[in-house]
Simulated assay, not measured.
Amino acid sequence: MLTDKFGRNINYLRLAIVDRCNLRCTYCMPENGLTWIKQNELMTDEEMLRICSVFTKMGVDKIRITGGEPFVRKNSIELIRKISELDGLTDLSLTTNGLLTEPYIPELKKFGIKSVNLSLDTLDKDRFFKITRRNSFDKVMETLDGLLQHHIKVKINTVVMENENIEDIIPLVELTKDLPVDVRFIEEMPFNGGDTDISLKWNFSQIYRYIKEYFPEIQKIQDPKNSTAYNYNVPGFTGNIGIIAAYTRSFCGDCNRIRITPSGILRTCLYEGTGINLKDEIRMGKTDEELKDIIINSIQNKPKDGWEAQKESLTASQIHQSMATIGG
């Protein structure tokens, strides 16, 4: 088992398989996109599979496939299949924007994927276009329907933004009345690919107060171990509600997560600006045992929380890097 210097067991790897995305969400990147990672700097399927294998041999039993948008990567479904077959892996999940996902749902079910995080910031078509700069709302809803039909657990991720989608909070809560979905409201983070600061009026406390005004009977429920969300239920509702304090970072104390970016950089914290490039180590001929030593050393330097990580290593320019570059 991988353990950091604070005694936290690290068993959860978030693997970003591509930086590219087919949306241009305002909180993630500029309208004209980003300077994408060059093809030779991206990890190959074989490199990703090898890194995942090394981690599972070290006790990582949960992997989440992220991006960018995972299905923008060529033949990503085959890579997902190979990862699903790794010994020691008990939980494989996926984060997607839903635009290209629907045709692959039967295969995802076959591979044993039980949970999918679906990015959806509004239930209004016009606001969807304004936020994502793409007219693809119907495709996302088709993916939602398909996932539920195949009995795959759905967590809807909604970034809460002042003057953008506040009017969607209550309709999204109401979505949990009859559907077996968890809707998680996420504090906006500064990783927008530009130089725009956020005021964060809509932090965890404000989001909760707003929901409670409409649903005063809302109840706190048990948070799963290592959960990043504070979880709630409206009595009688089928699904649940979560609030993720992504910017105020109040969940760091029992963090069990690490990230691998599309170019192979191991980041032990979302707010960390540096990291070891495992892809480069592989291309220099490192053995699996040598990779394990590098990983162990990196984990031992995992910061106490996101505030410490930002203070120690995140430069002013890196604060505004895109989440697609970091790995969602």
Rank of each mutant, 00 (worst) to 15 (best):
N256F: 00
N203E: 06
K201M: 10
E213F: 09
I198A: 04
K212A: 12
I207S: 10
I211M: 11
S205Q: 13
G239R: 02
I244Y: 10
Q222M: 08
T228C: 11
R249S: 11
G242C: 01
N226D: 12
F237M: 01
I221W: 01
G253V: 08
P224H: 13
A229Y: 03
G239N: 03
P224E: 09
A246Y: 08
I243P: 04
F215Y: 14
K220E: 15
A246W: 12
N231Q: 08
T238P: 00
Y210W: 04
D254T: 13
I258M: 00
P224T: 06
Y247A: 12
G236R: 09
I243F: 05
A229W: 07
F215L: 03
C255M: 05
G236I: 12
D254V: 11
A229I: 12
F204R: 15
D223I: 08
E217G: 10
Y247S: 14
G242R: 06
Y247V: 10
I211K: 06
D197M: 08
G253F: 00
V234R: 01
I221A: 02
S250H: 14
S199A: 07
R209S: 14
Q222H: 11
R209G: 07
Y210Q: 02
V234K: 01
I243R: 00
G242Y: 03
Y214S: 15
K225Y: 10
R257S: 05
N240A: 05
I218E: 14
Y247L: 14
Y230T: 06
R209Y: 04
N226S: 08
G253R: 00
F204Q: 15
K212N: 08
G236Y: 04
T238F: 03
A245D: 15
V234T: 00
Q219Y: 02
I218D: 05
Q222S: 11
I258Y: 03
N231Y: 03
P216R: 00
D197S: 09
N240E: 10
R209E: 13
T238Y: 09
T238V: 13
I244G: 07
F251V: 05
F215V: 01
D197R: 07
S205T: 03
K225L: 14
W202F: 15
T248G: 02
P224G: 05
Y208S: 08
N226Y: 15
I258L: 15
Y232M: 07
I244V: 13
E217Q: 15
T238S: 12
I241G: 04
G236Q: 03
F251Q: 12
Y208I: 15
I241C: 02
G253D: 02
S199D: 07
P235D: 00
K225Q: 11
R209I: 05
Y247M: 15
I244E: 06
K220P: 12
V234I: 15
Q206S: 13
K201L: 07
Y210F: 13
F251P: 05
A245T: 01
D223S: 03
L200K: 13
T248Y: 06
P216K: 00
Q206F: 09
L200H: 12
G242A: 13
I221G: 06
S205V: 05
I198R: 02
F237P: 13
Y210P: 00
Y232R: 13
Q219T: 10
I218K: 07
S199K: 14
S250W: 11
F215I: 00
R257H: 09
N231A: 04
T238M: 11
A246Q: 12
K201T: 08
K220S: 14
R257F: 07
D223N: 08
A246P: 06
A229P: 03
I211T: 06
